[in-house]
Amino acid sequence: MTEYKLVVVGAGGVGKSALTIQLIQNHFVDEYDPTIEDSYRKQVVIDGETCLLDILDTAGQEEYSAMRDQYMRTGEGFLCVFAINNTKSFEDIHHYREQIKRVKDSEDVPMVLVGNKCDLPSRTVDTKQAQDLARSYGIPFIETSAKTRQGVDDAFYTLVREIRKHKEKMSKDGKKKKKKSKTKCVIM
């Protein structure tokens, strides 16, 4: 069974824990209790493949930012979460993405942009803004509501699919490099 290491990042209060708990335990946590770091595991079937999701729910508070490099190193894919009623959390996505790329030393890291709290009427981040940002990053965008469960499975499952595509691409690139290195030079 394939294991996928997913990391949920975003500013404090955007609903990272609520999304994760909704996926794992099928219930909505409405009281806000700032996370330092929590880890969850769940076995699911995605596109006919049974897999184990190892999900790291991270601290959004700035005082825990020193811990970010460590979990970013171990993560295979990242859910970059903002709240649709919090423009600052949307603007912060850029910083999370840049930090992930720096730590992973790669421009090509599996990510999904997630606009959470889409059940709320007080939207300050337009869907088109988020779609445009995701398009500019070359990553999928999904709106979710941890409260109603809308888009929750889709967000995590899409990230797994992005990781699969990335692994497939990397193995193809690896095979191309191996083929090239088999060419021999004969000096007579």
Rank of each mutant, 00 (worst) to 15 (best):
H27Q: 14
R41T: 06
Y32V: 04
A11F: 14
L19R: 00
G60M: 01
F28K: 03
L6Y: 05
T2D: 15
Q43P: 12
K5W: 01
G10P: 00
K16V: 01
L53F: 11
D54C: 06
Y40H: 02
F28L: 04
D57Q: 00
A11C: 12
K5N: 09
I55V: 14
D38S: 01
E62W: 06
V44L: 14
L6C: 08
E63I: 04
A18H: 05
V29N: 13
Q61M: 11
V14W: 04
V45C: 14
H27V: 08
Y40D: 00
K42V: 08
K42H: 07
I55P: 03
V29M: 12
I21V: 15
I36E: 00
A18T: 08
G48T: 09
Q61N: 14
Y64L: 06
F28N: 03
I21T: 15
Q61Y: 07
C51I: 14
E62G: 09
G10Q: 03
Y64C: 06
S17Y: 00
H27K: 13
Q22M: 05
G12W: 08
I46L: 10
V9A: 07
T35K: 00
D33F: 03
T35Y: 00
R41Q: 11
D38E: 01
E62C: 08
S39D: 08
S39P: 00
V9C: 12
G13C: 12
A59W: 01
T20E: 03
R41P: 02
D38R: 01
Y40I: 01
I55Y: 04
G13D: 12
V45Y: 09
N26Q: 10
K5M: 03
I24M: 14
G48M: 06
G10D: 00
Y4R: 14
L52E: 12
E62R: 07
D54Q: 15
Q43G: 11
T50Y: 08
D57W: 00
Y32K: 03
A59S: 14
D30M: 11
E3W: 06
A18R: 05
G10K: 01
I46Y: 09
R41D: 03
D30R: 14
N26W: 06
A59H: 03
K42I: 09
R41H: 08
K42A: 08
L19F: 08
V8M: 06
R41G: 07
K5R: 10
T20D: 06
D57A: 01
Y32H: 12
Y40E: 02
E49W: 05
Q25F: 04
V29F: 10
C51T: 09
Q22K: 11
T35C: 00
E49K: 11
E31Y: 14
V29W: 08
T50G: 10
A18C: 11
L56N: 04
Y64H: 08
D54H: 10
D54K: 11
K16N: 04
H27F: 12
E3P: 15
T58D: 02
T20P: 03
L52S: 15
D57G: 01
V14C: 12
Y4G: 13
E3C: 12
E37A: 06
A18Y: 01
E31L: 13
L56K: 07
Q25I: 04
E37T: 03
S17W: 00
Q25C: 07
S17V: 00
E31F: 15
K16P: 00
V7M: 08
A18E: 03
E49S: 11
D33I: 04
E3L: 08
G13R: 08
N26P: 04
G10F: 00
I24L: 11
T35A: 00
V8T: 06
G10I: 01
D57S: 02
Y4W: 08
C51L: 11
Y64T: 06
L23Y: 13
Q22A: 07
R41L: 06
V7I: 14
T20Y: 01
S39C: 15
V8I: 11
P34E: 07
V29T: 12
Y40A: 01
H27D: 10
V14I: 13
I24E: 05
I55E: 00
Q22H: 10
E31M: 11
E63P: 09
G60S: 07
E31K: 15
I21Y: 07
T2V: 11
D54R: 12
V14D: 09
I36P: 00
Y32C: 05
Q22L: 04
L6I: 15
E49G: 09
V45D: 14
G10R: 00
D54P: 14
L19P: 00
T2W: 08
L52W: 14
G48D: 10
E37R: 03
E63Q: 10
T2Y: 10
